[in-house]
Design a protein around this nucleic acid. Structure first.
Lengths: 142, 142
DNA sequence: GATGTTTATGCAACATTGTTGCAATTTTAT
DNA sequence: ATAAAATTGCAACAATGTTGCATAAACATC
């Protein structure tokens, strides 16, 4: 791993008041390496099974709590996580961007440059958060 | 069950070329009774455990294949199904409406009257389907 | 650096959810 | 009423997620 990247990861953990551990560094490294969303099984594969399953679950939950990653909705039982690029904190997490799932390669990524549109709901509904997942074919698979 | 409703369900199954069985009728009845989305566990509870788990899985998959129900994306491991009110067939299923998840009562429902907005993606991406899930507080919980 | 305290990890055991093969039953068509 | 086709229930298995607790690692302080 590049020293530069390692420094970035350490800063990220410090700013969330988390201690620096091998598991957390490795998982963040995997997030930065992949430009898409990851699910639990990916971490077991990509990390070479060097970490316990339970540790991975707990690490992801911690990152969620701290606003370091966010979940992406899916229509199956998998839970997908993506790293938050910006504007997310421990107490105010919002995805202001669209998620895209490619039907060809199966990857899911955040389209940071594509804003969530305003949805006008029927009378009586209060919206707190809006999730948009677009599926189709990505740039690379065309 | 009302004879009228039963007749409706039988028609629905017939038009999808499915045979009329107790499980299928019961599950459709539960869909019509609830005005929100249901997940697998709900069927086990609501049906009074009268059906085998496997049968429920297979029935839901059959309904999906036939376009009778659709899935709603979630950020956890649950898989939520809602009955299609309109314009869905076996080979062209589209949700043209927004889904709403209430943070208070936990129910998920289809907002048939709220259209999915047009999302303009970055160059190179082809969109086939757009899912929108809004979370917040519903009419009943305010 | 060494030391004690706090925090994170790994293991075991368990709970939940989903899948597959096959025999028995039910539905449908004749 | 009967035969063929489809569905169901059971058993066994696979995958995924959770909890308690002892061990190990990280951190703050000296």
């Amino acid at each position: 791993m590049l020293a530069k990247q390692k420094e970035l990861i350490v800063q990220l953990l410090r700013s969330s008041k988390l201690s620096i551990t091998d598991t957390r560094v490795k998982i963040l490294e995997l997030f930065l390496k992949s430009n898409g969303a990851l699910e639990h099984a990916d971490f077991e594969k990509l990390s070479g099974k060097s970490f316990d399953r339970v540790t991975i679950y707990r690490t992801l939950q911690t990152f969620l709590d701290k606003g370091i990653v966010h979940k992406i909705p899916t229509t199956d039982t998998s839970v997908r996580y993506a790293i938050c690029k910006s504007d997310c904190g421990e107490h105010d997490h919002h995805d202001h961007h669209v998620h895209f799932r490619c039907e060809e390669c199966g990857s899911t990524r955040c389209l940071e440059e594509t804003d969530i549109p305003v949805i006008s709901l029927p009378k009586g509904y209060d919206a707190h958060n809006v999730e948009v997942v677009v599926s189709g074919v990505c740039k690379e698979c065309k």
